[in-house]
Design a protein around this nucleic acid. Structure first.
Length: 585
RNA sequence: CGGGUAGUAGCGCAGGGGCUAGCGCACUUGGUUCGGGACCAAGGGGUCGGAGGUUCAAAUCCUCUCUGCCCGACCA
């Protein structure tokens, strides 16, 4: 491609709002342009880079036997009503009516669509297993897009869907994806880890998220440097201490100005570990059949030294959504914020007690009377509720596996894999006939990678003061040919020769000064730069600079295509040597 | 949806009741320069986010509204 004819141009200054390096360079180098909040165009450079990523994805998906297909972005709402997600998903899914007043949705994922198709295609055990994938546009009306391509509303996603007879089949294809995803990310050059995750709106049991560890990430990963335990904080477990002892008589005590655990613990001179605190949320429960919504107060009880993890609480309560409770909602159930406990509470609420509280005795808890707390309260004797792990894992807490201190790190979720089971096949009656003539629901899995987000992470990982320096496997071009000579004949000839040799060349044939061309080359970050200047040309040589290392070598003009090919191969091999082949334990 | 902040040329910004709305970069033309964001000269480009209001006079003051960004809620 001749830069003199390239659609995009580079920007000297970062547009306002580009506050991470990767995002800034993607904008300045002309890979992407923003059109609205969370809505971006891929300019030719960005498009080429994502096509490289997609090619890697294709080859790895084909390697595990997946077939590529494409499903519509617009779905009739009916299939979403069948699974209930038409009702359980809130504004994040955009809905509209077509000209005949039929309910339609913009599909934010394709479990419903693919299951709808599969129930027509898969009728016998002989037609299982099956595995399909697509790379297609999703629209998710995220309430808060941010950080360029990291969190957007419209994006391209690789999504694949597996269909199996049984759990064993699902387990195999899930493992295939587990391995393939590591290969995909590592072939792109992106370091990643897999963590156990919350399955969220997808339903199903087992899921893993792939994380690119970076301070720009929004997820918190809890991991154990000692034994390798990793999980998203939303579900991360940790080893809790319990304090069982003989139950003592409950005792009411005046505790003025002790609305917080710290104040209370100080006033009474007790360890926060000997207190129980209440967190009030309101859960929204949705009837999958008719979409009717019901709100219910949830009282979460954790020990004073711990925090409630809302995802865990939401899962334990089987709530569709949680929000903090209003004061009236709390008092309506007979509890007094600041001095609350489930003891003596009345009315319709759900009480969920962390096992840290359930397995400890004689804790201080609210008396439901302003200014008073109760000493020696005990779960089971004084109040009841469902026991679950609802506490949030923090940096320094003990590893649930080996007991060593856990660490926390920020990460960007770049992919995830879910064992769906029969959640969708049962709801949509996607069954097959087994050897005995019995109709059995198909066992499904779904798997996704955000393609644009992957590019954004690569831009974060690979940059320096000058701009981007993407790995050769994903860079939009392999070579940047910078001509500094006035006579275009030699440069044109080299450009044509390189193209003929099958090399992807970005040819800077513009009438710009050397400084501008070099600065743009650094910004765009093509792995290799050929410099054509009078100086070396006199000796029949050209210079080749490696963007990553800054290392420069010169080659004879007639060898250039071969040398470049060899260097591209070296860089590609370097990436291939870092391919991660990891099996799910 | 709450809190904050900002919308003035393609990008980055200044100007805060008054006369022709500026600056840097980018762009056009001519000339010089020519291996790390050159120089000189002459130019082009603006519904000052939008609507309404106050005023002799509004980019500037007031009201409403739209949009972006950041924090939170939220989120596969």
């Amino acid at each position: 491609m001749r830069m003199s004819r390239m659609f995009s141009k580079t920007l000297r200054e970062a547009p306002n709002g580009a506050d991470t390096k990767g995002y800034e360079y993607l904008l300045r180098a002309g890979y992407i342009r923003q059109m609205g909040a969370g809505i971006f165009s891929l300019l030719p450079l960005g498009f080429r880079a994502t096509e490289k990523i997609k090619a890697i994805i294709r080859s790895e998906m084909e390697a595990i036997g997946a077939e590529e297909m494409e499903m519509p972005v617009v779905n009739p709402a009916d299939i979403w009503k069948e699974t209930g997600r038409y009702y359980s998903i809130d504004k994040e899914m955009s809905r509209f009516k077509d000209r005949n007043n039929r309910d339609m949705v913009l599909a934010m994922t394709h479990e419903e669509a693919v299951t709808d198709i599969a129930r027509g295609e898969v009728d016998s055990y002989k037609r299982l297993p099956r595995l399909v994938y697509q790379m297609q546009t999703k629209w998710r009306d995220d309430p808060r897009p941010r950080a360029g391509l990291i969190r957007v509303r419209e994006f391209t996603m690789l999504d694949s869907y597996s269909f199996d007879r049984d759990a064993a089949g699902l387990d195999k294809v899930y493992r295939d994806h587990y391995r393939a995803y590591f290969r995909i990310f590592s072939r792109c050059g992106l370091p990643s880890i897999a963590v156990g995750a919350d399955s969220g709106m997808m339903g199903g049991k087992i899921s893993h998220e792939y994380m690119y560890l970076s301070p720009i990430g929004e997820d918190t990963i809890i991991y154990c440097p000692e034994c390798g335990y990793t999980a998203n904080r939303q579900i991360a477990k940790f080893s809790k201490e319990y304090f069982p002892e003989e139950m003592k008589e409950i005792e009411k005590r005046e505790t003025p100005e002790s609305k917080t655990i710290e104040a209370l613990a100080e006033y009474l001179g007790v360890d926060p570990k000997k207190t129980a605190k209440c967190v009030f949320m309101v859960g929204s429960f949705i009837n999958d059949k008719n979409g009717e919504e019901e709100d219910k107060l949830i009282v979460a009880v954790v020990r004073g030294d711990l925090e409630v993890e809302e995802s865990k609480l939401s899962n334990a309560a089987r709530a569709n959504a949680l929000r903090p409770a209003h004061e009236e909602e709390i008092t309506a159930c007979g509890m007094v914020p600041g001095y609350a406990s489930p003891i003596g509470a009345k009315g319709d609420f759900i009480c969920i007690v962390d096992d840290s509280v359930a397995k400890s005795n004689n804790l201080v808890a609210g008396a439901n009377e302003a200014g008073y707390h109760l000493l020696n309260t005990n779960y089971g004797r004084d109040y009841s509720g469902m026991v679950a792990d609802i506490a949030s894992a923090r940096d320094g807490f003990a590893c649930p596996v080996c007991g060593k201190p856990l660490k926390a790190s920020k990460g960007v979720e770049i992919g995830n894999i879910f064992q769906l089971g029969t959640r969708y096949s049962e709801a949509m009656n996607c069954t097959y006939q087994d050897e005995n003539g019995k109709q059995v629901p198909v066992v499904m899995g779904s798997y996704g990678i955000g393609v644009g987000r992957l590019l954004a992470c690569l831009a974060e990982e690979y940059n320096d003061e000058g701009g981007l320096k993407l790995p050769v496997s994903v860079a939009p071009y392999q070579v940047h040919l910078v001509s500094l000579v006035k006579e275009t004949e030699i440069a044109d000839k080299i450009y044509e020769d390189l193209e003929k040799a099958g090399i992807e060349v970005l040819y800077d044939d513009r009438k710009e000064t050397a400084g501008v061309k070099f600065a743009d080359a650094d910004l765009i970050g093509i792995p290799l730069r050929i410099t054509l200047g009078n100086r070396s040309l006199k000796e029949g040589k050209v210079e080749v600079k490696i963007r990553e290392s800054g290392e420069t070598t010169s080659f004879l003009l007639e060898d250039i295509a071969d040398e470049i090919k060899a260097e591209i191969m070296r860089e590609q091999q370097e990436i291939d040597s870092r391919i991660v082949n990891k099996e799910l334990d």
